[in-house]
Write a protein that binds this DNA or RNA. Structure first.
Lengths: 258, 258
DNA sequence: AAGATATATTTGACAATGACAAACTTTACA
DNA sequence: TGTAAAGTTTGTCATTGTCAAATATATCTT
């Protein structure tokens, strides 16, 4: 045995998820393309793909393999199990309706940002922008308003585990690209009670996020994003933040009565 | 080697998905409970659970293992990839808004019913009823309006593959529980152009479903469900069916221009 | 609070099984 | 129609998933 990690893991299962993530991140790939990515022979790769295709978690659409439809109800099930989703959904809907913009409910898992629910109001832009990145849980928390709101209220020990592993990819010229300045920003987020995202993820898009806390723990964040042209001055500095914080507070109260 | 099936499959990966489905169907389980279900030792089971937990596809919440949050964006990604979802979503929304009831967009995979999108109108009931079954792709197609609409327009050879494997579980006293009568019903569905579900899945709930076809192939179905008390007489016999068929036709047209 | 019991987790050791290479098949292209 | 490329299957061997048992942790009992 070469790679005897401890605690032990099932390597084939890790490989299976590697493959699913390759299929997701590439938007579909051929056997050889996947084989290249995961560094296995085409024969082996084929056996994995066939196994998951049998189960409906992978699908072969004229020669290209994709993540299969069985992933949809599985994800939907997990979302439905989430208390935060159940009590937070209506606030996101309301925020989107009221402002006409896009609102998100976000949680953190394994140091990544998981969008639990999103609603696009009548004037919302960027639906397609989100679409293309959707399902990409490799998203870091440092370049979104909701992510920063979560990170700011994450216990220091855990934050120290998460941040050093970050890539700090420069998604736009405004993205914070070093740990030190992010930590300063997070300090400001804690003082203010909300986080801002000023075109740090997508140029032309600003956002405001507020933390959702319950029993002393950070549980997620709610955010509102809009084009920079519609989110300026006092709007961006205080009016919308106040509204988003209020929405987050309602969710916190809902959590208590649930 | 004992079980040398051909074509070959990765048994550990099959087991991993067995475990995920046990976690889903049980709504969370302990190591020993899972071990019992999958017929492995607790030690082995634990290694699988730990492997998937590392990856975020399984989660340990105070001693009970659950499907993990990474399933959410994965499912969301697959849904977003679906052409049918992208062009069908707005019709489902409209139908739900207009009638006040619940509307669904459904596809078939591996002989199971996959709910791609659902929208509950202001008067809709049964949200929780659906909730508890959500994410359960073991659903058969024989006891829902959308499922019957799909099955009716599935090529005969494929239908002959699917139906013999059915359990025909009697979910309510009205469920069709034998293949012969289902085949007759499907014949009627083809004549009428739409399918009905008269309390066959949930007592007190009726539904109407219409097939979505494109390039001679069945692609899915759209359905509307409402309490029996609000779906009676001409409403159930023709008015709502006409409306649902019209919605399905719009989706068919959208598919062409997409 | 301590002992007892059940459950979860880790580890040594071996047989099962996943991996490769190569054969074979199918598909794409010239 | 021939050739190349990609997909799929299979024989074989070394890797690794599996069990049993040991250890650790949690839960229950008196």
């Amino acid at each position: 045995m070469t790679n005897d990690r401890t605690p032990r893991r099932i390597q084939s299962v890790e490989l299976a998820f590697d493959i699913l993530e390759v299929l997701r991140d590439s938007g579909g790939a051929t056997v050889t393309e996947v084989a290249d990515q995961i560094d296995r022979s085409p024969g082996t790769t084929h056996t994995y793909l066939a196994t998951m295709a049998d189960r409906g978690y992978v699908r072969n659409r004229d020669g290209e393999y994709h993540v299969g439809l069985f992933a949809v109800p599985l994800g939907e099930y997990v979302r439905g199990q989430s208390q935060l989703y159940r009590v937070g959904k209506s606030e996101v809907d309301e925020l989107a309706q009221e402002t006409g913009e896009a609102s998100h409910l976000v949680v953190e898992s394994h140091g990544r940002e998981i969008p639990l629910y999103e609603r696009f109001g009548p004037d919302a832009v960027g639906e397609t922008l989100y679409e293309e990145n959707k399902g990409h849980p490799r998203w870091n928390l440092h370049c979104s308003a909701a992510g920063k709101a979560i990170l700011a209220h994450t216990p220091p020990e855990r934050r120290d585990e998460i941040l050093p592993n970050y890539e700090f990819a420069e998604r736009t010229p405004q993205t914070t690209t070093d740990e030190a300045s992010l930590r300063e920003e997070l300090e400001a987020v804690r003082r203010q009670g909300f986080a801002q995202n000023d075109e740090e993820q997508i140029t032309g898009l600003r956002a405001v996020g507020a933390p959702i806390r319950y029993e002393g723990q950070i549980r997620g964040a709610i955010s509102l994003s809009a084009p920079t042209s519609r989110l300026q001055g006092q709007q961006f500095a205080s009016e919308i933040p106040e509204r988003v914080v209020q929405a987050a507070n309602v969710v916190e109260i809902n959590l208590q009565s649930a």
